[in-house]
Nucleic acid binder design. Structure first.
Lengths: 216, 216
DNA sequence: CACGAACCGTACCGTACGGTACGTATATGG
DNA sequence: CCATATACGTACCGTACGGTACGGTTCGTG
């Protein structure tokens, strides 16, 4: 059974279309290109409507984050019988999805935007991005490694710690490098495989380790 | 023997003082506070001098990064006889230093600045920050794990891969979270210890593993 | 049809920034 | 003592942005 987890959209279809245009503008030209006049022009709406709907520029930015987060859906697989092989495969898929999400145009643009604003006092954009943007992927990963533990395939005392270890193994400094403008990996599949191998070597029980190659 | 690695400073003492003030301004108020007029006022110099010395605003930002990088010094320990215990200790110290550097006010402010500019075409700030800011710490880590390999304590085929694994284990998503405004860790020492334990479990030879606790 | 609400397009305002120009002071060197 | 270079402080300019106001248009509803 798969459970679809998504937020109900908080904005009208018209507003969603405007937010979509705003995101496109942000991806193409960066924050400097994201002016209220520019958004209004690109979305064929008036500035007055923008301010009526979103309050001010910060409200628009928050709405963009919320809208983008509402588009992301994950499927938590429950009740599936996990074996060492299927656990490995699921974690690899998770790792590749994670890398793909982090390398996405919109994700990078929104993270750059929030980071650029995070020095100002109480900008809340960073907090919003972390809560709304990562909750889905965090829940998916936690459910997966919890299932691995229940199936006797993984061994850890602190699930959060195990998850952060997996995250670090998968992403390393790649996210920051991409945020700084470096091109992404050429071979994400290999990176995902490497990370999962290391993760299972650290947290796998004998049932898992028995099926792994002896050397890294 | 310790080898001091540092860059010769490229600016006059007066210019360094101005850059120091600019960094302080950036740390305190973020990029928005870093105006040419503000820097001139804070540093008691004229805007004309700023433009004469650094060309334009981007030149000033680049100079700030170069200046900050020139202040960082690392000591590469060569020729030291490594044991399992001393390797462990050195890697832990490296991990704690890394976390401390990444959590520093100036580092976070400069990373935020470069990331905020990295969407604009050819802003080069991100590239500059990666090359100048990380070269020292990368070299120190590579020298350390290479020494570990030569001493028969570490086992890997690709040193770069091993280093990135260590980096990911130490930092995980902490850097991005801090860039987004989240407070840093309360206990960096524990995080460093955990990461190094995992790293040695993955890359340590039997000589190292024999001295480690059996369970995570 | 009539009325009102929502909305578009545009024009407008105040402000603040990047960058330039100018008059003055300080120091260095002959 | 003068000449030259360097740099300070201020004033200035053009531009562009966030935010507001207003007239005209569409559209749903009684």
């Amino acid at each position: 059974m798969s459970v679809d987890t998504a937020e109900p959209s908080e904005f009208s279809p018209r507003q969603n279309a405007v937010l979509e245009q705003a995101l496109q503008l942000l991806v193409d030209g960066g924050e400097k290109a994201l002016t209220t006049s520019g958004v209004a022009r690109a979305a064929n709406c008036s500035k007055e409507s923008l301010y009526k709907w979103f309050g001010d520029r910060d409200g628009l930015l928050s709405a963009m984050i919320a809208y983008q987060a509402s588009k992301v859906r994950t499927f938590e697989r429950n009740g599936e019988r996990l074996t060492a092989a299927s656990l490995h495969d699921h974690v690899v898929i998770f790792a590749r999805d994670l890398l793909e999400v982090l390398a996405g145009d919109v994700s990078l643009a929104l993270n750059r935007l929030a980071i650029g604003q995070s020095n100002r006092d109480g900008s809340k954009l960073g907090k919003l991005l972390l809560e709304r943007g990562r909750r889905q992927i965090d829940r998916r990963a936690m459910a997966l490694i919890d299932a691995g533990k229940r199936a006797g395939l993984l061994r850890f005392s602190d699930a959060d710690e195990a998850y952060h270890t997996l995250y670090g193994l998968v992403v390393s400094d790649l996210h920051v490098r991409m945020l700084l403008g470096e091109p992404g990996l050429k071979d994400t599949a290999r990176q995902a495989e490497r990370a999962v191998t290391a993760f299972l070597r650290l947290y796998g029980t004998d049932k898992v380790l028995a099926e792994m190659p002896v050397l890294g």
